[in-house]
């Protein structure tokens, strides 16, 4: 103890009245590792992210996961039930459903991610410009209104009818239906950001408009767009499956979950597993992406981010 300073102050610890000690009302926080802390704070991101990572891994590593050629026909062993040899059974052309489902995840993920990326980039661009240029705003937003008034799936079917079936065309067709909500979202965020004092301060500080958009507006729109993109990804996967299911999507030669289900539809009553396995995979994937989106929304929401 530094008795000299205490002497100098004229008081020592023994002389003063101490406040009564107070108990801990709540148990102190548990010490957690960094991963533990992340899991605790963002359980949905953790679970969603883990599942998405798993499905991406399955898609990438499909050839190594005991699969056979998903398009190899073997009429001799048609519609076998799931067994040790054919884990998910075989379809009416004798193709291994397990292999088809695993390879099919590639199509779903490619479509989901591509649509999310394409719709976000286009929507972001349109939204940013509409938020800054008044004339463009009125024109472009009316076009977006028009696009949004057509049900997305019908619009996608119509667009597919104009072209030939291919994965690229499916991506473009679905992306077109998703651009309006993204641009609308970005535009509204831009309009509110423009009123923010820090943007006004940047204008007053002589910052040119392109720099303002790039440095002050764009970075602050990325969080809501990222969240929106995950939801678009999930809904694009469902749309792709739907389009394929009704024969307006990916060419039947490519194993996609929608195609597998479409082919199994006729045998649904007797051989339900042909439809069941791709359906389960689709559901889990969509759930995982949605969980991730929910978690991101909570984590990135500035109102929720400021915790006590």
């Amino acid at each position: 103890m530094t008795s000299s300073t205490l002497m100098a102050s004229g008081l020592s610890v023994g002389d003063v009245a101490a406040a009564p000690a107070l108990p801990d009302v709540l148990a102190p926080r548990k010490q957690r590792s960094r991963i533990g802390m992340f899991m605790y704070r963002h359980p949905t991101i953790f679970v969603g992210g883990l599942l998405v990572a798993l499905i991406v891994a399955i898609a990438l590593l499909a050839p190594l996961l005991f699969t056979t050629d998903p398009t190899a026909l073997a009429p001799a062993r048609r519609t076998r039930a799931p067994s040790a040899q054919y884990w998910f059974g075989t379809d009416m052309l004798g193709r291994d459903v397990y292999s088809r489902v695993l390879y099919g995840s590639r199509i779903s993920l490619i479509v989901g991610f591509s649509v999310a990326l394409l719709a976000s980039v286009v929507g972001l661009t349109i939204g940013l410009l509409a938020g800054f240029i008044r004339i463009l705003d009125t024109v472009v937003m009316r076009v977006m209104d028009g696009l949004q008034s057509i049900p997305g799936i019908l619009l996608a079917i119509a667009l597919m009818a104009l072209t030939r079936a291919s994965v690229e065309n499916v991506i473009v067709a679905i992306a077109v239906t998703q651009v309006p909500p993204v641009s609308r979202l970005v535009r509204s965020v831009v309009l509110s950001l423009r009123e923010q004092p820090y943007v006004e301060a940047a204008v007053a500080a002589g910052t040119r408009t392109p720099i303002i958009i790039l440095k002050h507006i764009l970075p602050n729109t990325l969080a809501p767009v990222t969240v929106q993109a995950t939801f678009i990804c999930a809904s694009a996967m469902i749309t792709e499956a739907t389009l394929s299911f009704i024969g307006a999507g990916t060419p039947p030669i490519i194993p996609s979950w929608g195609n597998i289900m479409a082919e199994g539809r006729a045998l649904w009553q007797v051989k339900p597993y042909i439809v069941f396995f791709p359906a389960i995979f689709l559901s889990i994937t969509v759930l995982a992406v949605n969980l991730l989106g929910d978690g991101l929304r909570d984590a990135l929401d500035p109102r929720l981010a400021k915790r006590i």
Binding site: A202, H216, P219
Partner: peptide, 30 residues
């Protein structure tokens, strides 16, 4: 360059995604 402004709300008047150095440097660069 000659007229500048300081706003009321210290939480919304600074870009949350810029570092302090970049915030202060912005007018100098401009």
């Amino acid at each position: 360059r000659r007229i500048q402004v300081v706003f009321q709300d210290p939480f919304s008047s600074l870009n949350p995604r810029q570092r302090v150095r970049d915030i202060i440097a912005e007018p100098i660069v401009n």
